[in-house]
């Protein structure tokens, strides 16, 4: 890992939120899925959305980036109201999105996938830095994107938004279905990104993994935020959390 990437950057404790979600409602077709979700993410924070299957975690991310059919309420990025914006303009506010299904394009090579998202802000990682972070991607640069293993596809999905200069990353279950050693590598990457000053909103099913990377956990149930647990208090609240998640 390059030295420069690991240089610690202080995060102001009482900064204005980078992402603020308020009274967010969302629909899939006719079905009303989000019922007034609200939470903040401060610059440099890593926040997870925890909750059962179907609680509305993925839908919340989709509503933030603007690819949900219908949404209402408020989503502000750096104070800019984004609820009425098309997703391409939300991305241009400096938001990078990794969808749950990873969204690797089969008709593009690994290198093409990696360089597809346009730069939205200055200061993104260079291709060289991304290859240093994920050496597998460089070895397979010419392969078809979907020929990669699940773990490599996840690295590709994360790597390609690091190039864009987006400093707010929305990651939808980056560890889902991956081998423990790969999960560990992704955890290291997220911690490195945090020290680099990236702000991350992470959807997770696996709170044990979330515990290793996050500052705070926002618990979602039936399209509402029902609790927020600071990472330091996670162990003390384990019983409550297990009830929430039904594990």
């Amino acid at each position: 890992m390059p030295e420069a990437l690991l240089a610690e950057r202080p995060v102001p404790a009482s900064a204005a939120p980078l992402l603020s979600v308020d009274d967010l409602e969302g629909w899939y077709g006719e079905s009303h899925v989000l019922h007034g979700v609200g939470f903040d993410v401060k610059p440099g924070e890593v926040v997870t959305l925890l909750g059962r299957n179907g609680a509305g975690k993925t839908t919340t991310l989709r509503a933030i980036i603007g690819i949900l059919g219908r949404r209402r309420g408020s989503v502000t990025v750096k104070g800019v109201e984004a609820i009425a914006m098309p997703s391409r303009l939300i991305a241009r506010l400096g938001v990078g999105y990794v969808p749950e299904e990873r969204g690797i394009f089969a008709s593009l090579t690994v290198a093409e996938n990696l360089t597809l998202p346009p730069q939205v802000k200055p200061g993104g990682l260079t291709l060289k830095q991304i290859y240093e972070l994920f050496p597998n991607l460089e070895e397979r640069a010419g392969s078809q994107g979907t020929k990669l293993s699940g773990g490599e596809q996840q690295m590709l999905a994360i790597g390609r938004i690091l190039r864009t200069g987006a400093k707010l990353l929305l990651l939808d279950e980056p560890t889902e279905g991956l081998a423990p050693v790969i999960v560990e590598q992704i955890g290291r990457t997220l911690r490195m990104l945090k020290t680099e000053g990236f702000t991350i909103l992470l959807v997770e099913q696996n709170f044990r993994f979330a515990q290793t990377v996050a500052d705070r956990h926002v618990v979602i149930e039936q399209g509402r935020v029902i609790d927020t647990i600071p990472n330091a208090d996670l162990d003390a609240n384990l019983g409550k959390l297990k009830t929430y998640l039904g594990v």
């Binding site: 603007g66 098309p86 391409r88 999105y97 969808p99 597809l116």
Partner: peptide, 24 residues
């Protein structure tokens, strides 16, 4: 070409390409 890559990607998944900031 790059433009062709946008076209191929948007043929597969226009919503995601748009979410990357491309004017689909």
């Amino acid at each position: 070409t790059k433009l062709g890559a946008y076209l191929r990607a948007a043929t597969e998944n226009p919503a995601l390409v748009q979410a990357f900031g491309v004017n689909v």
